[in-house]
């Protein structure tokens, strides 16, 4: 029962996100707006109820179930994007190599400064 209460909170925040998205014509999905609102509220409150923590954990643990129908589609769109798969593959592999390299390099640079500084 208490988990359902947490689920209600999540659903209400999602609806609030959708309301803001439509009324303010925001280009961001209602889920993300609801998530930002929830994070901000929790930070202001400084604590979280067991029911909300439980419901969130339960939903996150079955996320794979919720996104699977979309992933299955990738095996059925081969024809739709024929001739572009080489571009997709190279963009993904090379792009990820470059972005990992950039991230590690930047992080090392800035965390190195922190050690030299006051920390």
């Amino acid at each position: 029962m208490s988990m359902l209460r947490g689920f209600l909170v999540l659903t209400v925040f999602f609806i609030a996100g959708e309301v803001l998205r439509v009324l303010l014509a925001l280009p961001v999905s209602g889920g993300v707006i609801g998530m930002i609102l929830l994070t901000l509220l929790l930070m202001v409150k400084g604590s979280i109820s067991d029911s909300l923590a439980g419901a969130s954990q339960a939903l996150i643990s079955v996320l794979v179930l919720l996104i699977m129908p979309g992933v299955v589609g990738v095996f059925f769109v081969a024809d739709e994007f024929a001739g572009q798969w080489l571009a997709v593959g190279i963009a993904l592999v090379l792009g990820t190599l470059l972005s990992v390299l950039t991230t590690l390099w930047l992080m090392r640079r800035f965390s190195g400064q922190e050690v030299d500084g006051h920390d």
Partner: peptide, 26 residues
């Protein structure tokens, strides 16, 4: 057809996205 049936699961995706705010806060 599969996608249409599985839509029922996707309904939960919105609240599940909101739920990601909890570990982020933690």
């Amino acid at each position: 057809d599969y996608r249409e049936g599985a839509q029922w699961l996707s309904v939960l995706l919105g609240p599940a996205t909101v739920a990601l705010g909890v570990p982020l806060y933690q």
